[in-house]
């Protein structure tokens, strides 16, 4: 049973009213896809051997072209983590697209405590806690926090008049 078969089984068991479709590429080492439709939410998952699960979710008011040829919004390393993330999205009926998250929400979704992160960052927990509650954070501090969570910081600027999306780099 592939990890996607396993994921499908867990989801079917926990969300019996959800419609779940699965598809596998012809290549035995190719991609496997899972699309879960629960309420007005659609969660799309893709996985292939030696790769993490990639997922995106779309609300009922999403445009038909949303997600077309896009890379997944989020990545989970295990079947268990992917299942929990999908369950959380379904319970909250939340889209991963154009969805800003607070640092505390990301930390929570990744199963990390403030204590653990403050140790990783070599600061007191009270100091880290203040950072999460601040409305304005230095980019360098934000980068350190995201990297301590195992991530990589990317900052994008969106210009509605031209639909242009530019990634910002810092020297």
């Amino acid at each position: 049973m592939s990890p996607v078969d396993e994921l499908k089984q867990k989801l079917t068991s926990c969300f019996p009213d959800a419609e779940i479709e699965m598809r596998k590429a012809d290549d035995p080492n190719g991609f496997q896809f899972l699309n879960v439709y629960a309420g007005t939410l659609e969660v799309a998952v893709e996985w292939k051997p030696n790769m993490h699960f990639g997922l995106s979710s779309f609300c009922g008011d999403s445009s038909a072209l949303d997600g077309l040829f896009d890379t997944p919004s989020e990545w989970c390393s295990t079947t268990e983590a992917t299942f929990h993330r999908i369950a959380s999205l379904i319970y909250d009926q939340k889209s991963t697209i154009h969805q800003a998250s607070k640092i505390s929400e990301i930390r929570h979704d990744r199963g990390m405590s403030q204590e653990h992160l403050s140790e990783q960052l070599n600061v007191k927990q009270a100091t880290y806690s203040k950072l999460e509650r601040r409305g304005d954070v230095k980019v360098s501090s934000l980068r350190k926090v995201i990297e301590a969570m195992g991530g990589r910081l990317r900052i994008q600027a969106f210009f509605p008049d031209t639909q242009d999306v530019r990634e910002i780099s810092f020297e």
Binding site: R23, K24, A25, D26, D27, N29, G30, F31, F33, N35, E42, A44, V45, E46, K48, H52, G54, S56, F58, D66, G67, L68, F69, D70, T71, P72, W75, E167
Partner: peptide, 30 residues
């Protein structure tokens, strides 16, 4: 996992055959 400013043709590891027809199916997320 990367976002590049380059287009790629349909990748073989996303393609499946539609049985009985001269047709290929390429899956992306949605």
């Amino acid at each position: 996992s990367m976002t590049l400013d380059r287009m790629f043709p349909p990748q073989a590891d996303r393609i499946s055959t539609v049985e009985g027809y001269d047709l290929k199916r390429l899956d992306s997320l949605r």
